[in-house]
Amino acid sequence: MKNDSFVITIKKLNKWYGSFHALKDIDLNVALGERIVICGPSGSGKSTLIRCINSLEQHNSGTIVVDGREMIDSKAVHAIRAEVGMVFQQFNLFPHLTILQNLTLGPMKARGLSRAEAEDRAMTYLERVRIPDQAQKKPAALSGGQQQRVAIARSLCMEPKIMLFDEPTSALDPEMISEVLDVIVDLAEDGMTMICVTHEMGFARRAADRMIFMDYGEVIETGPPNEFFDAPKSERCKLFLSQILQH
């Protein structure tokens, strides 16, 4: 397969925090429209990996090519970030702005849209995540699930080609997890390219094309969800799955 059929190409990626080797020779190709779920024990490097894709972490060696652009200088980083949306575990909404302002800030300041265009777009995506009625409130007035849906809408307002989710439901109360996952599944069904770090295995079965299991900074196992869950090959992956599926 030719390189340019992939929207993300990662080769021999290495990342150290001091002497701690967080990512070890990671290779990863993501096709356009592919939905990938990454799981693994904490400290295995899954968050670090997706944070490298939009340069929130700088890698030490190896190459990252996103949408045909290699991440080499700040100009490339800026261009890549424009194509990559990210949703954080802690939502990271801007608490001093209303929901609507949270959504319009990027399109207006980074994309140069007019206020009317940006608000139009914001309302479209707020409807998509099913909370258009909360537009004038401040984030603190919303529940965790609603805040995370706003965060997803905020990313979508930039109309990215790729969405990264960094444990989007880990900070949520249990009863709010499904409302957020439903929105992500919706996106997946619409063909959005996405990489999602999560331990929600039911969601992974529903939404993922491919599972990746990481441990100690390495990709240990990868495959389609059915094979991955029903017949894991590596011992570490079997152990991990048995631990998280037990309860």
């Binding site: 929130l56 970030r81 990027g106 980074a110």
Partner: peptide
């Protein structure tokens, strides 16, 4: 101000000056 605020600003395409002006300094 939480580091996540700067990160979120970066991911919606704001540059350093915009991040300071619209996200960090008002808080």
């Amino acid at each position: 101000i939480n580091k996540g605020q700067t990160e979120a600003a970066k991911t919606i395409g704001l540059n350093y000056r915009q991040t300071m002006r619209y996200v960090i300094l008002p808080q």
